Simulated assay, not measured.
Amino acid sequence: MSVLVVIPARFASSRYPGKPLVQLTGASGEKRTLIERSWRAATAVEGVDRVVVATDDAQIQEVAQGFGAEVVMTSSDCANGTERCAEAFDTLGGGYEIVVNLQGDAPLTPHWFVEDLIKGLRDDPMAEVATPVLRCDGRALKGFLSDRRAGRVGGTTAVFTQDHHALYFSKEVVPYTSRVYGDDEAAPVFHHVGVYAYRPAALGAYPRWEAGPLEALEGLEQLRFMEHGRKVLCVEVEARGRQFWELNNPEDVPRLEQMMREMGQN
């Protein structure tokens, strides 16, 4: 199956304007923008036929083309990354059997997360969308709970059936846990990784559907698929010693830079 990776990037984020152009300092001291680091993560994935940045902003276009990315310009009316991916796919003329949305705020996404995601969608004919989930250890769970206590919207959690079809995604920490877990102890909470793989029919239908109340309340685009009865597959991925976090708020910059230093990621 041919695979297209789209990296949606917009300047006018309500929580963090200009986020794709934020500079992150790696382990060597070299600074690179968030969008470049996300693009580098995408180009490291095996089995991908094409990687494009999809944006509505001329400044992001200029920066992305400056480091060698292919850019597709999309409408400023796109409500979220999935709508932007759908428009980019149409602009490119379709022709791919799987479209991956690697959101531009997840530069620490390991290549095997995306490779496992693609395989998961290929292997489950009932699923129309797939997304990775990573089991939290105690350290990661403490980070989630700390963000919520501070009133910050941090990462997203997922709950799913025994056959790994999604039941719900939330910016709250679900399920509730009644005890404290050790830093390296596995916890019963799964961190949703902000990557999606779509079959073209589901991606093409998405912009025509109205956003439902759950999507509006949580601000999570994947809930639109679920509210319209489409199956979303949660593919469990392994960290393999790598740390993972998204850039959601300005406070996440030092957190990501510390992770890059600890992992020796330049």
Rank of each mutant, 00 (worst) to 15 (best):
P188C: 13
H164D: 09
R230N: 06
A127R: 00
M263Q: 15
E115M: 06
Q258N: 13
D124M: 09
V63L: 08
K171I: 00
S28I: 10
E257I: 09
G81V: 02
V114G: 07
S38W: 01
P188M: 06
T156Y: 08
F225C: 08
E185Y: 10
M260W: 07
S75E: 04
G29E: 05
G204Q: 15
T25C: 04
K231N: 08
N101R: 10
H228E: 12
T82N: 10
L108C: 12
D183Q: 12
V48G: 02
K171L: 05
C78V: 15
Q65V: 06
A158N: 04
W39F: 15
A186R: 13
F113R: 03
M259K: 04
V100F: 07
R240A: 06
R255T: 11
V3F: 01
V232T: 10
L217N: 06
F169G: 00
H192I: 03
V195M: 03
Q265F: 14
G93E: 10
N248P: 00
A216G: 13
A186M: 11
R37S: 07
T74D: 02
A12D: 12
S38A: 13
L102Q: 04
E238A: 11
Q222S: 04
G68D: 13
R208I: 00
P213L: 04
G219R: 08
K119M: 11
Y96L: 01
C78L: 11
E236L: 07
R15D: 08
E46H: 11
E210P: 07
S146E: 15
R148Y: 03
F11S: 15
E251V: 14
I7P: 00
L34K: 13
L256N: 07
R261D: 05
V100P: 10
H228G: 09
N101F: 08
